[in-house]
């Protein structure tokens, strides 16, 4: 029988704190009532329910959180945020997971390596869009 090893070290704490920082929410406010998942129109399309994602953030289980499709299916309809009895902005937490992934991703375009001729033809807004990913 295999056990999922759980620990509450630095990595776990940092992941949880980053999500809290981005979302502005205290994930420990969640007492796992499931109201968010109960009302989410896309729960059946998600491989982990919304409340399970939040529970895993409480536990600092970064890999499991990121591996789920939940936050990608989320349409940011805010139903969960409106309904949460603990007044947690659940959708902001889903958004924070997406942000977290985007921020961690390697840069797709490294500006300094773009050939000069491409740079000259590129609209400014495209460059700004690329930089934005690194801010926040």
């Amino acid at each position: 029988m295999s056990y999922e090893y759980i620990k509450f070290g630095k990595e776990e704490r940092e992941f949880r704190e980053k999500i809290e920082e981005i979302s502005g929410e205290n994930v420990f406010s969640c007492y796992q009532c499931g109201k968010c998942s109960a009302g989410c129109m896309f729960s059946d399309k998600m491989d982990r329910t919304v409340n399970q994602q939040i529970h895993r953030i409480q536990m600092g289980q970064k890999e499991k959180v990121l591996a789920a499709n939940t936050h990608w299916i989320c349409a940011s309809c805010l139903t969960c945020s409106v309904r949460c009895p603990r007044d947690i902005d659940v959708a902001a937490i889903m958004e924070a997971i997406r942000e977290y992934i985007l921020r961690e991703e390697p840069e797709k375009i490294i500006v300094s390596e773009l050939p000069k001729e491409v740079l000259e033809r590129l609209p400014n807004i495209a460059l700004v869009g690329n930089f934005r990913k690194m801010t926040g």
Binding site: Y3, E4, Y5, I6, K7, F8, N51, H55
Partner: peptide, 15 residues
């Protein structure tokens, strides 16, 4: 400590 987390349906262990 070995046990279960019924919210994630996983058996868990920790020190």
């Amino acid at each position: 400590i070995r046990g279960v987390n019924t919210l994630t349906s996983e058996t868990v262990e920790m020190h």
